[in-house]
Design a protein around this nucleic acid. Structure first.
Lengths: 193, 193
DNA sequence: CAGGTTCCGATGCGATTGCATCGGAACCCT
DNA sequence: AGGGTTCCGATGCAATCGCATCGGAACCTG
């Protein structure tokens, strides 16, 4: 066996370069050359890892999807909440990419969302992440309040979080306002359920 | 005075061509040549109307923004609602671009939203439209239910509508499901307020 | 250490992009 | 009718794009 390279590691490194570029210039600003430069590899290496640009973008989307959903799951395990209701609050706070340190992810997510609207294969990847989050939230909401339709509430909260993320990104809301709106929604949910 | 042309009319025609292209191929698929072809004018004419591509896109965004906000206002005047609450329902139903016939506008809106995340001047245009809608909804909510924080609820509903629109676009929700979620949220709002 | 295999950096290519240019058509006023 | 002005279609251009190609470096095996 000749020269071997950890392809997965390299793919991840490239995916992160893609995300960094999307964050600063949007999806349109992502070119193979810039990606290669940012990832500190040659264009040839990028082309070896991904046959086409589209394949590279799909991988990057899956990458960031796993990152977000993974963190949501981790948040649940790491810090046991005092109540199921506060667990929902924590997870939603992790999913809604409102705070400054998640701003980059938010931009990336939104860019992919818009692209997915005209690109079925990206849409499929996104749906998979959303389905994961919806499942997680549904279980938590059900546990926190048996008397409401958990799936409905989970879907509503997920959409609300997404909408607020967009509004924060364009400066229509501050992240504090958005977080307040999100928590107010949850508070009403508990008192109603 | 020599040859005169209705510039505004031409700009609008071009803006609609831009929107049609965004709907089918996303923002990245918009080129001056395609726009000219779609609008059935020459590239020269496009360049005369807009000095740069960016200026053209800004105009198109304002165009579709006025279209959406205008329809929201019109919905209010045209069909007097039986109650302020149902007026909110009507306006929100108009703003959330869920139904099939609004799918194109939804894609366009989302494309601009994502672009605005990395383009301040687009973000400014979007904020202007959002501010309009928020004001309209706030007034209606206040009228429908005095006991709630109208501005907060208007902002929440607006974000929820936006989030649901995105989810419908990628096929994560059907428009019927989204509409049901939206109306369920409003229903709880009235009974709580 | 030799042979064979894997990998990749550099380079080239055709297509496409946004924008600049300009000669002449179209038009109004006198 | 003719001069002056506005407009635009055609064309050119430099830059950039994604992708294909390939010679040699890198490396494991025997």
């Amino acid at each position: 066996m000749p020269k071997q390279v950890d392809h997965e590691e390299r793919r991840r490194r490239i995916a992160e370069a893609v995300c960094a570029l999307i964050d600063s210039q949007g999806l349109e600003g992502v070119t193979l050359r810039d990606v290669a430069t940012r990832a500190e590899v040659s264009m040839g290496a990028v082309q070896r890892c991904f046959r086409t640009k589209d394949e590279m973008l799909r991988f990057a989307l899956d990458h960031i999807g796993e990152q977000v959903t993974g963190r949501a799951h981790a948040r649940l395990v790491a810090a046991p909440a005092q109540s199921a209701a506060s667990a929902v609050g924590h997870v939603v706070g992790e999913v809604a990419l409102l705070r400054e340190e998640r701003r980059a992810e938010a931009r990336i997510w939104l860019a992919f969302l818009a692209a997915a609207a005209v690109n079925p294969s990206l849409a499929a990847s996104l749906r998979s992440s959303y389905a994961d989050l919806e499942g997680l939230l549904t279980r938590l909401v059900a546990e926190a309040s048996g008397s409401v339709d958990a799936r409905r509430e989970a879907r509503t909260v997920l959409a609300l979080a997404d909408g607020l993320t967009g509004h924060v990104l364009i400066g229509q809301r501050t992240s504090e306002e958005a977080e307040e709106l999100l928590h107010a929604h949850l508070a009403r949910l508990w008192e109603a359920g």
